[in-house]
Amino acid sequence: MSRDDIVADFYNIDRFERQNAEEISLFKNGGGAHLDLMACRYILDAWNAR
Results as ranks from 00 to 15, higher is better:
Met1Gly: 09
Met1Leu: 09
Met1Ile: 11
Met1Asp: 14
Ser2His: 03
Arg3Thr: 15
Asp4Leu: 15
Asp4Phe: 10
Asp4Gln: 09
Asp4Gly: 04
Asp4Met: 09
Asp4Ile: 14
Asp5Arg: 01
Asp5Phe: 11
Asp5Ile: 05
Ile6Gly: 05
Ile6Lys: 06
Val7Phe: 13
Val7Cys: 13
Val7Pro: 05
Ala8Cys: 04
Ala8Asp: 03
Asp9Arg: 05
Asp9Cys: 12
Phe10Gly: 04
Phe10Met: 06
Phe10Cys: 08
Tyr11Ser: 15
Tyr11Pro: 03
Tyr11His: 12
Asn12Phe: 01
Asn12Met: 08
Asn12Gly: 09
Asn12His: 07
Asp14Asn: 00
Asp14Val: 11
Asp14Gln: 01
Asp14Thr: 10
Asp14Phe: 06
Arg15Phe: 15
Arg15Lys: 14
Arg15Gly: 13
Phe16Tyr: 10
Phe16Lys: 11
Glu17Gly: 10
Glu17Trp: 08
Glu17Ser: 12
Arg18Gln: 08
Arg18Ser: 14
Arg18Cys: 14
Arg18Val: 15
Arg18Lys: 13
Arg18Trp: 11
Arg18Thr: 14
Gln19Cys: 10
Gln19Val: 15
Gln19Glu: 13
Gln19Thr: 07
Gln19Tyr: 14
Gln19Ser: 11
Asn20Trp: 07
Asn20His: 10
Asn20Tyr: 08
Ala21Cys: 02
Ala21Gln: 05
Ala21Gly: 12
Ala21Asp: 12
Glu22Asn: 11
Glu22Phe: 08
Glu23Cys: 02
Glu23Met: 07
Ile24Arg: 07
Ile24Asp: 12
Ser25Val: 11
Leu26Ile: 15
Phe27Gln: 07
Phe27Asn: 02
Phe27Cys: 07
Lys28Glu: 12
Lys28Phe: 15
Lys28Asp: 15
Asn29Pro: 11
Gly30Leu: 13
Gly30His: 09
Gly30Thr: 14
Gly31Cys: 05
Gly31Ile: 13
Gly32Ser: 10
Gly32Glu: 02
Gly32Arg: 01
Ala33Ser: 11
Ala33Ile: 05
His34Asn: 03
His34Ile: 14
His34Leu: 10
His34Tyr: 14
Leu35Gln: 06
Asp36His: 07
Asp36Ser: 06
Asp36Tyr: 07
Leu37Ser: 07
Met38Gly: 07
Met38Ile: 12
Ala39Trp: 04
Ala39Val: 01
Ala39Leu: 04
Ala39His: 03
Cys40Trp: 04
Cys40Ala: 08
Cys40Gly: 04
Cys40Arg: 00
Arg41Tyr: 03
Arg41Thr: 12
Arg41Phe: 06
Arg41Gly: 05
Tyr42Trp: 03
Tyr42Leu: 10
Tyr42Thr: 12
Tyr42Ile: 11
Ile43Asp: 04
Ile43Trp: 00
Ile43Asn: 01
Ile43Glu: 04
Leu44Cys: 05
Leu44Trp: 05
Leu44Asn: 00
Asp45Trp: 00
Asp45Pro: 00
Asp45Gly: 00
Ala46Lys: 02
Trp47Phe: 02
Trp47Tyr: 02
Trp47Pro: 06
Trp47Ser: 08
Trp47Met: 05
Asn48Gln: 09
Asn48Glu: 04
Ala49Ile: 01
Ala49Tyr: 02
Arg50Trp: 01
Arg50Tyr: 10
Arg50Pro: 06
Arg50Ala: 03
